[in-house]
Design a protein around this nucleic acid. Sequence first.
DNA 1: TGATATTATGTTATCGATAACATGTTAGCG
DNA 2: CGCTAACATGTTATCGATAACATAATATCA
Lengths: 347, 347
Amino acid sequence: MILSDRRKRITIKDVAQAAGVSTQTVSRVMNKFSYVSGETRQRVEEVVAQLGYHPSTLARSLSQQRSYTLGIVTFDLKYIGPSRTLNGIADKADELGYMLLMKELDNFDTNKIDDVIDSLLARQVDGILWAVPEIGDNHAWVEERMEKIPVPVLFIAMQPRSGISSVATDNFQGGVMAVQHLLDCGRKKIGHISGPLGWWEADERKRGWLETLNAAGLEALDQHCVEGNWSSIRGEQAFIQLLESYPGLDAVFVANDQMALSVLREAFRRGINVPEQLAVVGFDNIPESAYFYPSLTTISQDLPLIGGQAVQNMVEMIQARQGDQPAIAQSIFIQPTLVVRESSKRV
Amino acid sequence: MILSDRRKRITIKDVAQAAGVSTQTVSRVMNKFSYVSGETRQRVEEVVAQLGYHPSTLARSLSQQRSYTLGIVTFDLKYIGPSRTLNGIADKADELGYMLLMKELDNFDTNKIDDVIDSLLARQVDGILWAVPEIGDNHAWVEERMEKIPVPVLFIAMQPRSGISSVATDNFQGGVMAVQHLLDCGRKKIGHISGPLGWWEADERKRGWLETLNAAGLEALDQHCVEGNWSSIRGEQAFIQLLESYPGLDAVFVANDQMALSVLREAFRRGINVPEQLAVVGFDNIPESAYFYPSLTTISQDLPLIGGQAVQNMVEMIQARQGDQPAIAQSIFIQPTLVVRESSKRV
DNA sequence: TGATATTATGTTATCGATAACATGTTAGCG
DNA sequence: CGCTAACATGTTATCGATAACATAATATCA
């Protein structure tokens, strides 16, 4: 292996010179197709191997106006949800030959949003995946800003909006499934510990709870629901509060597994038997939930699948735009599934 | 806001023309320093704002041979550990003005490693952060390949090697702290459920267990340790096995919190009282561990800090190289801390 | 007052590739 | 045998910026 000064990058020119051909010919060899004689091809390939030449994707991106890179904007990776989504995104991107340029967002200052988008565009990403939870009106910029962005944008876990692509779990349906399951188990007094209200996903899960109870002719009063914030610690407080505000409670639908864990623990401490006296259903199906005591019935959402689906759609949009076809925006809902475990046995 | 065809990028030339100056002058305005008259600067800035010009970082990277982008290679983001590290990396990178080009590795095929590195280099990253756990000899390539890589490389959670930069938790010390704590609680028969042996981190934690017992004059026999694989399910099996192979067991040091969760559950099922009959100490301090029943004593490792530290060092290495100073490789050990909770009360 | 430094700006080359166009050779066919 | 199509390769322009160098106008100083 011949290696000159390792600081010096080996360029297409070096290869061209060493092989005694033009750079264009080297480019043709590297990119397969188009006419190159077998003899020339072989000679160039030998030189490429010998010099250890690797083309600069950067230069190629500039000249082709295409980077094979996706911008991905996430929020708070310290939680398991976003990173499982990212996992799916990374796998699928790899499969389809894209790299990921990542940016983590930690607040919703509008300037910050513009900066993030601009910094991605400045690096010539072919598309942007926005994987930031929808909270309050923090997606309000979308409608207005959208058409000024020269590449396709796809939103993950955003409330469907017409004309804008998105992929999300059907949280409402998840809530319905959870509560319907509890009803099927013969429960009548079903409380709810919600996520932080204003988060679209939390609101949807709560709506599933509420509408399913109503449909069954049961009452869902304000005091039957306590607001949490996804964390175990708030889950504990919320549960304690719920026990007071909903006497006779015989089941709880908890908006995520982490809070459900606290419910199980606090119930145990107080001698409330789960599931006999209290059935519990969570949401997310984190791997540990099968090992809670008792094991947790939960609504499973396939976050890696959502991430993968998002990338798939994005790449299709990019290709459509490449071919100057109209990219059709679509909102995709992925259905969650119910996983029944010990915490909700039929009585 | 004047917007022409949104597909057409506004370049430095457009600005130069509109402002009646050369591109070089625009470049000078955009990059502050260097001489520009106040009048010209203002005129250019107005045009920039009016046209909504954003420089192409891509083009800049090519011409400066510097991208302000770090390549980051991770492994299996679906686990919480890697993503917490990534969280710290992302925050610090943002703070220091770098973006992240991410690649997820899912196996250790040597070709794959070369491909990953080459694909990052092709995109002109200024440095590479290798955040893949060290398993068996999957880092064997390091010594040989290292000097051919033209940018600094830093390894996370790798066994220190001279001449190579790395940042890692002191897993051995963590093991020592866990076992010492159990000894301090008056335990004598301390078993261990390890991570998958061959993983450096698992081996270190086990070594901490073993050496601490030996130092205390206690025996640590083969049958006092069962190998797990970090997962809750294996944790359960390992614990059951350990109960058989180590009669009289009065404490367990479990190599991660997820497996410890299973231990707590299985102990409860069998009527083994924690901590009275059995003290349990985990490792990681995942947020949920405070809400296990009973709450889990554990060794806390600050993964975001490690990620941040890694970025910090990396940027220093990049700057040193920029200034043609010799970048000094250093291996940093971060000390974990003991968090005492209910699962290990003194008897 | 002329020499030198400072300020302000423009011109040309360069980063590493590909696109578009040009040209030359060979092969096939009527 | 001459014309066209297919093949093979080279030349020049371009992507969007910055580096290096050049030039001109002031300002400063001995």
